[in-house]
């Protein structure tokens, strides 16, 4: 028996919207830790890791140890679009061996209750071990600003060079029509803490990434006012959006490497 009641149902809607362009189908894992997912895009260039901790749910019951539920994200998205933004979402399943999952949507006033049953799928997914890393630079900035930069640069070029130095974090691209550079300096003198740009640098780092993926990651912007970008010269970048009181969604993107 699995029963997860999420009062802020819109979080789940936003999470799936941020994943569905990169991930076709995936196993959601339910354990005592929480509701989680690890999946790669079909080219294995990006890896997505989601955690919604069990204590963030109003009710969290998962009796079967680790219980993977294979879902096609496009179908899940269709169903979650039927939930109102203020609805409470309850996910129910009978346990291993059962091939359906039920989503119940309750309006805040409880005057409307809907349930949608979705077929589960068997998915062969390989879990990757993500090593604990020492990053050369960790930058926290407003998520809307990061989204804006990725969108702006993708009208000029296909790749972005992200460099962190004492000066700040620099995003550069070049294309047929010309070049673009955007520098964000550390800025902690802001009225609201979420507007700050904070740069922790151990050593300068510069890496090249495909902008198409970065733009996809920014679909998670509605989940958090801030984004954290962690860079090391020999590792995938980690773009993390914290999910209030519940966990995170992390996007790992493999760099482009000079031949």
């Amino acid at each position: 028996m699995l029963e997860l009641r999420l009062v802020q149902g819109s979080l789940l809607k936003k999470v799936i919207e941020s994943l569905k362009d990169l991930v076709n189908d995936a196993n959601f894992d339910c354990s005592s830790t929480g509701f989680s997912l690890q999946a790669m895009d079909s080219s294995h260039v990006a890896l997505m890791s989601l955690l919604l901790r069990s204590d963030g749910f109003e009710h969290y019951r998962c009796d079967h140890g680790n219980f993977p539920m294979g879902m096609k994200l496009e179908n899940l998205s269709k169903i979650l679009k039927c939930a109102g933004n203020d609805d409470i979402i309850t996910i129910k399943a009978d346990g291993p061996g059962n091939d359906t999952v039920t989503f119940m949507f309750e309006s805040p006033s409880q005057e409307k209750i809907a349930d949608y049953e979705m077929k589960l799928m068997d998915i062969d997914s390989e879990h990757l071990g993500i090593p604990e890393a020492e990053f050369h630079a960790i930058v926290r900035m407003p998520s809307s600003e990061f989204a804006r930069i990725c969108k702006d640069l993708s009208s000029i070029g296909d790749t972005v060079v992200i460099s962190v130095t004492k000066e700040g974090i620099k995003f550069s691209t070049k294309g047929d029509i010309g070049t673009a550079n955007v520098v964000c300096r550390q800025n902690t003198t802001v009225d609201k803490p979420e507007d700050a740009t904070i740069i922790e640098m151990q050593q300068p780092v510069s890496l090249t990434f495909a902008l198409r993926y970065m733009n996809s990651f920014t679909k998670a912007t509605p989940l958090s006012n801030t984004v954290t970008i962690s860079l090391s010269s020999d590792l995938p970048v980690v773009v993390e959006y914290k999910i209030a009181e519940m966990g995170y969604i992390r996007f790992y993107l493999a760099p482009k490497i000079e031949e």
Partner: peptide
């Protein structure tokens, strides 16, 4: 030119 690497180059299967 630069070549796109993959996640599996960096992280191994469990």
């Amino acid at each position: 030119g630069s070549k796109q690497s993959t996640i599996t180059k960096f992280f191994s299967k469990l």
